[in-house]
């Protein structure tokens, strides 16, 4: 479903070029959950951005089902969850979830129903009309999970989704993410520091020095 081969990425820091990824290969099968762990600065987020097509590799190739990642394909086939939630503050929870559907066209009754169902699935049925600043950190991340699943993506990329949450809330969010992806047959790539969370995924990889150890 997702195939990355020979991904290299480096950044300039002053006069020095720092290599972040030194030739990473990764394949994710449909419905599979993969956890990527690694130390801070090991290139986990960079790898996720390359997999999402948000950034271009210096070398290597990312393919989603055999074709190149584009913005339109990202909207249709990919859901993303971030450490900092990134909810739009002017929109309530339901509108934030529907925002993903808006990228593909004007949402109709079916999309609204699905957004409401997703919010109910993540335990926020009573908070659909709340603005992000009226929600707790864990609730915001659950809204972000619902948004990532709105367009029924084939793949969800989650970049340290528990980084801004306390341990108990973080566990709940990861369980939710894994559970929903398992139910819907959605592939999941989860980047985390947490070994316990990694253990819950189907496959765990460790990124060290720009390569999988």
């Amino acid at each position: 479903m997702l195939r990355a081969s020979g991904l290299k990425k480096s950044y300039l820091s002053g006069d020095r070029r720092i290599e972040v990824l030194g030739g990473v290969d990764l394949a994710v099968m449909a419905g599979e959950s993969v956890c990527i762990r690694g130390e801070s600065g090991s290139g986990k987020s960079t790898l996720l951005n390359l997999l999402a097509g948000l950034d271009a590799p210096d070398e290597g190739l990312v393919e989603w089902e055999g074709t190149e990642a584009t913005a339109d394909r990202r909207a249709r086939h990919l859901g993303m969850v971030f450490q900092s939630f990134y909810l739009i503050p002017e929109l309530d929870a339901l509108q934030n979830v529907l925002m993903a559907a808006r990228m593909l066209g004007v949402p109709g009754a079916a999309e609204r129903k699905r957004a409401a169902e997703l919010l109910a699935r993540v335990g926020l049925a009573e908070r659909t009309s709340h603005l992000p600043n009226q929600l707790s950190g864990g609730e915001r991340q659950r809204v972000a999970v619902a948004r990532a699943l709105m367009n029924a993506p084939r793949l969800v990329l989650a970049d340290e989704p528990t980084g801004n949450l306390d341990e108990r809330t973080g566990d709940a969010v990861v369980d939710l993410l894994l559970g929903v992806c398992r139910e819907t047959g959605t592939a999941l790539v989860l980047v985390t520091h947490n070994a316990a969370h990694a253990a819950k995924a189907g496959r765990a990889l460790f990124l060290h020095g720009g390569r999988f150890a």
Partner: peptide, 13 residues
């Protein structure tokens, strides 16, 4: 700025 980044992640060009 970060919301604009999010829009890109959601598929906006």
């Amino acid at each position: 700025t970060r919301e604009i980044g999010l829009l890109g992640a959601l598929g906006a060009n």
